[in-house]
Design a protein around this nucleic acid. Sequence first.
DNA 1: TCTCAACTTAGAAATAGTCTAAACAACGAA
DNA 2: TTCGTTGTTTAGACTATTTCTAAGTTGAGA
Lengths: 141, 141
Amino acid sequence: MTRLASHKVMSLVQTQGLKMTPQRRAIVEYLQTAKTHPTADEVMTAVNRKFPMTSRATVYNTLNWLKENRMVKEVFEGGVVHFDPHTAAHHHFVCNKCGKVEDVDCSAINEIKLCSLPDHQKVETMEVTLRGLCAACQKSK
Amino acid sequence: MTRLASHKVMSLVQTQGLKMTPQRRAIVEYLQTAKTHPTADEVMTAVNRKFPMTSRATVYNTLNWLKENRMVKEVFEGGVVHFDPHTAAHHHFVCNKCGKVEDVDCSAINEIKLCSLPDHQKVETMEVTLRGLCAACQKSK
DNA sequence: TCTCAACTTAGAAATAGTCTAAACAACGAA
DNA sequence: TTCGTTGTTTAGACTATTTCTAAGTTGAGA
């Protein structure tokens, strides 16, 4: 599954006339290695292990900029916003018991044809959230 | 499209040994008539027109209780949590320009067969969010 | 009517996210 | 390499959202 790529971030920075700072680099690197879908607070904590003075504002600014440029997806679960560094088309599975969010690459979903909507909306993208019991919670039941 | 039904709320109250208070009734009635997907704050404001002293805690308690009992759906858009009083299976369309959330009853989506997932999750429900341009924003472009 | 568990209330507290103004630093130009 | 422009970072104040608390209130069964 394709992840947030450094060279894409670099080219975004350049075409928009921005600057690549150590803080931005650290945030992007953390997202690249994250095994989960971290919250803003988790990104904050992780980046502060490298740069102890990184401020909330910088973390939120960078995450929002990545989001606006479609380098990360926002996922809302359990009352908290998570950031998903996977950029390839994919969907999410949420466990109703433990709340864990997993990525799903299900061809059956990707084959859905975008239907024409009754009110003449123009559909550009689609996100699917499946809910149920994850493998671990089925066993521990 | 089926909406939050009073008799279902009543029977939930009774089977759970709870009490039906005027505040709860007012919140449910407002959700039944709402044309949009109101936020907690909008519910608060509306209910306070009838019961001027209704507290935040009561509104949040009631909304959370309805959510846990699947009488309303939570929809996160534009950094804000909305509550959707439609209980029938349906999905959402979000306009990328104006942020408006519309209900979608699209048979093409409902016909999707829930695929078997690679990691043995047990899928119980599915939510689809379509994004694009709403009819109004296509015209005003 | 009585009783008690459930409920509501105001306000405090926790949590999440944005804004500000001053100091700082990346990077292209000289 | 130095300089200057301009974008960036910082701490902390501020706003908004949601939860918690303790005390008083009330719905509904007996």
